[in-house]
Nucleic acid binder design. Sequence first.
DNA 1: AAGAGGCCCTGATAGC
DNA 2: TGCTATCAGGGCCTCT
Length: 287
Amino acid sequence: MPELPEVEILKRSLKKKIKFCKVAKIKIHNANLRYKVPQLINQNLKNHTVLNVSRISKYLIIDFNFSKKLLIHLGMTGTVHLVKKNNKKYTNASFYHSSSLPKKHNHIEIYFKNNIKMIYNDPRRFGYFKLFEKKYLLNNLIKNLGPDPFSSKFNYNYIKKFIQNKKIKIKILLMNQKFLGGLGNIYANEILYNCKLKPTKSVNLLTKKNIQNLIYQSRNTLKKAIKFGGSSIRDFKKTDGTSGNYQHNFNVYGKNNTNCPRYSCTGSIKKILISKRSSFYCPKCQT
DNA sequence: AAGAGGCCCTGATAGC
DNA sequence: TGCTATCAGGGCCTCT
């Protein structure tokens, strides 16, 4: 599920709904995520107020009115749901369609004092919750992450310098979080299609025009996905339980053996494996 | 330097 | 119906 657009959608929703909310308590039902969730998290966050919700790459950051921030990564299958208490029961209101609220794998619940509850659900448990000192977070997380695709740091000179003396496949480059923060398998495939670049192309063969177009298409593709509310393939849901819609706009992802959607191209989409990840492209117009 | 492979997990789907 | 195998959007790590 969660690549940059999905985390961005989540961030915007949380920002609207839990900003300035005060934590009443936190229940950990299963602490065994990618990293063990410390039981102390409850003592630490209790009675503190959410000041802001932000995103860096695929990471969600919740800022509180004390020295620590909560860092959330959704791994492969993490989702966040918000419910509201009415008449002693947590139900939909304008927050959630209770019929579709997951029953299994609700590992962490954050209760706020205004009767809102935030639920973290994650079947495969590849995600994590970590508390960080604000300074430590900035120094260590951001240092190891490439720029956000929308940041001005993601520019021609940066890319040129990064790929200097490298001969890796372009798709591997795009998915490398140290190069660029936020792309995963789906959007890497889609962006390369929009750039007419084949995923196995070696980065040392990229022209100046290729690189400039790559920047443009990365932003454009992600922007569109955000506009459509992200992609729901298996389990991505917005915090109100509804699905995103960008999956209907995929050109290549999951479309092997279908006709290339590009006007005037007669190719058909092919699936190959690159580092064991499914890669989809049109051999005719992506070169 | 680049790439392959393994590992952390559960669940959906396909094939028998 | 029920078994088993394969695959899945992430990100670590180690080995060659």
